[in-house]
Write a protein that binds this DNA or RNA. Structure first.
Lengths: 242, 242
DNA sequence: AAATTTAATATGTATGAACATATGAACAAT
DNA sequence: ATTGTTCATATGTTCATACATATTAAATTT
């Protein structure tokens, strides 16, 4: 691939360099720890100042996509899958891992949820709520079983098209924006139901991820729990401390 | 507050400016959309180049703490309420859950770590590193087994007092600040070693939390992995999305 | 051959200068 | 009072230069 910067474009040079670096990050030449061209050469090759190139690489280093080491060079860093600053829906999360999702089963029903869920949505007595159960995975196997409950106040009827991205559906059809996520992660042993759904042995380890979803006004909109086969994914988070 | 940069310090100017800006972000003078001093004045006041100041503000803009607008100025951006921004040491985490920690065993040794750890610290050949193994829990039972490896470049000898909070020890005795944590969480089944250490059955589910710790310059300082009994704790994280 | 020293390489830091352009305030015209 | 123009202000972009320092490779010494 020809590495090129258009000096006559209205797009600032450092932004063009950034885009070019993003492309380079995906190139086979630079996988498995292979070094990028050094800054002095690359900037010269592109016909821009080294400082201008560093503005671009600074951005990508901040994003965790590149790793620069003094005296060594610059490499693609190992992907960090999710920054806790921006939580993702399951579909988005899998997409970011390069996994193509298959919905094996989807079942909707009206059911009385566990007390925890009733409390979350602010109900003191038992109320039936829209319950969605899904078994999802990739082409080769099913690896997660989801249960979702939706706040009745949203007005979902159960005939919506749940093949669409869920939070998009909520936003477009119900004007509800999913903003805040509280997630709780534990390990549990698969009971007979989970074992059957995920094709594993009873007692096998399961990563259980429970999520409480709120809108911008912090009103509860959805509760979901995902039971993941233990070898299917790794939950990653990067954070800083003061 | 007097705004000050120490030109004789070994700490790079742009990092000092960054710390100073972080302090300013918390000052009442700059809340509620109040403008920061402009770049030309502030850099002049601090006795540093405007470009150097911009390195610092670039960082904070990337972190979402500051908002800069061309022709207007710079303001503190609205706080994102995200607990994951501040990761905690194990002790702090347990304290926040009201659990009083007991160290059941602590063992230090010099050992060759797994390849992943060698790579993390940037070694291509096998090097012995300080390895710490701990079984910890509360008064009633032991529920987590930790393995830590420390970057040899830190200079730890192995005779340090590890009863002290670890990151405090690193900061006070080695001038190393633990800043960034990358964590990976999975569920695994207990092997015979873990089963014995944690008094559980072989095959029982374990929450495995692997952590890569970096200093402010993103240099690796510690790797640790914690194997938690599945009913002992819940990992919680709250985050927002755009 | 192994250990030490030196040299080469690559990123990290910092500066000053020049110019571009978005924004908001002030002023003029209607 | 409203709209349009001009000017001042503040950040955005880019460059060239110089030096610092971590890392690796090469040369020298033991």
């Amino acid at each position: 691939m020809k590495l090129k910067i258009d000096h006559h474009s209205s797009i600032p040079l450092h932004l063009q360099a950034e885009e070019l670096l993003r492309k380079m990050i995906k190139m086979p030449d630079y996988q498995a720890g292979k070094l990028f061209p050094n800054e002095v050469n690359l900037s010269s090759q592109l016909g821009i100042s080294r400082n201008t190139l560093r503005q671009a690489t600074n951005k990508l280093v901040h994003e965790g996509l590149l790793l620069r080491k003094k005296g060594v060079g610059t490499v693609v860093s190992k992907p960090v899958d999710s920054k806790a600053k921006n939580w993702m829906s399951f579909s988005q999360e899998m997409k970011s891992k390069g996994i193509e999702i298959v919905n094996y089963t989807t079942e909707l029903s009206w059911a009385i949820p566990p007390m925890e869920v009733l409390n979350f949505f602010g109900y003191e007595k038992k109320v039936k709520m829209l319950k969605m159960e899904r078994v999802r995975g990739d082409k080769k196997n099913q690896f997660v079983y989801f249960i979702s409950y939706f706040n009745p106040k949203l007005g979902l009827r159960g005939d919506e098209d749940f093949n669409r991205p869920l939070y998009e559906l909520l936003e477009n059809d119900f004007s509800v924006v999913a903003k805040v996520s509280k997630e709780e992660i534990t390990a549990v042993a698969a009971d007979s139901t989970l074992a059957e759904l995920l094709k594993i042995k009873e007692g096998d380890p399961i990563l259980k991820r429970k999520r409480f979803v709120f809108d911008p006004g912090r009103r509860p909109i959805e509760y979901n729990v995902g039971y993941y086969k233990s070898d299917s994914i790794v939950y990653s988070v990067e954070s800083e401390r003061d």
